[in-house]
Design a protein around this nucleic acid. Structure first.
Lengths: 99, 99
DNA sequence: TGACTGGTTCAAGCACCGTTGATGTGTCGG
DNA sequence: CCGACACATCAACGGTGCTTGAACCAGTCA
């Protein structure tokens, strides 16, 4: 019984498409280390602010990250089950073996 | 020490782009179950033959599958380290925990 | 209220990738 | 040698999605 059982084929493809971009991949890597506000992300992922916003929206829609407003700033964090989702998106049960 | 250490960022993106397609995802799922010739794959992944050939080439170039000629037919199989490559392509060490 | 900063959204341009039809390569049977 | 089959490659079209610049919200401070 794996987490993969609750994801449809289309959902897995959408997840993989969300991962398969250099900007979004870098963002996920950063958020895997720590929660960060957008201004902080901008220093580590050098792209125009509006472009970063676009990619963050894609990640939000994919359910991989969450956004929280803190005063003027918005903090982004990995979704609780982001790791599980990512592993579950791989074909052939390749992502199994981790809790 | 994980398999991820030997993959560059670009290589991981290329792997994920190879995975993020319905046809290729289905092919990998099939090959995860068993080695199959192209004619066999065609029955399980209903797309035109030349299109299937195109996607198989993408998977070959990504190092995820291997092709072997057997008479008139060509057998495709998952590469030995396909599972390892797929897990290593995920950001933030999400694929770790499996041998 | 008005200026300023942090983020987001909108509309348009452009490149890339998947699809298609035709052609090419390799193998077996007659 | 010739036709048939299995598969691969080529050239061209079309749609999707990344990128860009501008305009637009939300919150803080004077």
């Amino acid at each position: 019984m794996s987490a993969a059982d609750v994801l449809s084929r289309e959902q897995r493809i959408e997840l993989l498409q969300a991962l398969a971009d250099p900007v979004r991949w870098a963002v996920l890597e950063e958020l895997g280390a720590a929660t960060r506000c957008v201004c902080d992300l901008r220093e580590r992922v050098p792209v125009p602010a509006n472009l970063l916003s676009y990619h963050l929206k894609v990640l939000r829609d994919a359910g991989l990250v969450t956004a929280t407003r803190r005063g003027r700033w918005v903090d982004y964090a990995l979704a609780d089950d982001a790791g599980r989702l990512m592993r579950a998106s791989l074909p052939g049960g390749a992502g199994e073996g981790s809790a």
